[in-house]
Amino acid sequence: MSTTSPVAPATGQAPVRRISYSRAINEAMAEEMERDERVFVMGQDVGAFGGVFGLTRNLYKRFGADRVIDTPISETFLVGGGVGAALTGLRPIVELQYADFLWNAGDEVIGKMSKWRYMHGSLFTVPMVLRLPEGAAGGAGPEHSTCPEAALLPATGTYIVIPSTPYDAKGLLKSAIRDDNPVAFFEHKGMYGLKGEVPEEEYTIPLGQADIKRAGSDVTVIAWGRLVHRALEAAELAAAEGIDVEVLDPRGLRPLDVEAITRTIEKTGRVVITHEAGRTGGAGAEIAAIIAETCLTSLEAPIRRVCGIETPIPQSLHLEQFIIPTADDLFQAIKETAAF
């Protein structure tokens, strides 16, 4: 069994420091604000308070009130105003307090951020990043806990990026800020405290490149966000039974690295797709369809999906834990897929 690092590639002999996912995101914003004066941050409570999840800590002190802007509770302004600022020479980073608030700014996300450039004849660019804290964590309840990334699949024009490690979060966010297209950047709240290797030196990760988080030859698990870690746990359980699992993290849904997906399917012939959002209308359906279209004949077993339970996410912390696929759920699916 061969493995690659689930966090960061080793960089020479020096020990690589370990920082949290949230600090990686904070560093990416600070570095890009330092690098480019057109970059600014706005959101609810992002100023002196540093954001409800602490993601913008110290930015206000360092860059001032003109570039770290506390807004009212006005999601249509946050996103629509971000578009207006992006059209006129700035590069906004807009933080929605929760990814679920995409619905509060539905037209601004779908109709404006995603379409403004195209519908106006590509005369503009919309270089903005919409940061979206997502996922079930800490009993935030049905309206503050979802992973709505699939809702943006039809929003052609907007990239969808979902980092699963501190290393990816920093490198992808820096690329997202520098990109001239709007980027929806989903950060799982349950990973904010997760630590991983992040080098001191500058690096970026191109958008739309999948990453093999664990190489293997028997079954592929396609996972993103927090479920990458459960997939890696499941892979260890499977390894104990002699099943060699490959974990492919697309690191987002658009651009989607179809080539990497095809490559892993051609290699293993067996695939389990997992995400925290519910199965119906989830992004796993789109990936399954792409696999069927591009490499159906390479499959040795039916495509398997392991997804979140399709109920509103309960407020109860006790019940919340049962919503999300576990490493054991994935291990069972891997075993069945391997045995097919």
Binding site: V83, G84, A85, L87, F124
Partner: peptide, 29 residues
């Protein structure tokens, strides 16, 4: 863009918030 014509929101009233964003951009710049 050369004449500052930024476009129009097809959904009426969508421009209210974009315009405020453009005005914020002026203030920041």
């Amino acid at each position: 863009p050369a004449h500052g014509v930024l476009g129009q929101s097809g959904t009426l009233g969508g421009g209210h918030v974009l315009a405020a964003g453009a005005a914020l951009s002026i203030k920041i710049r």
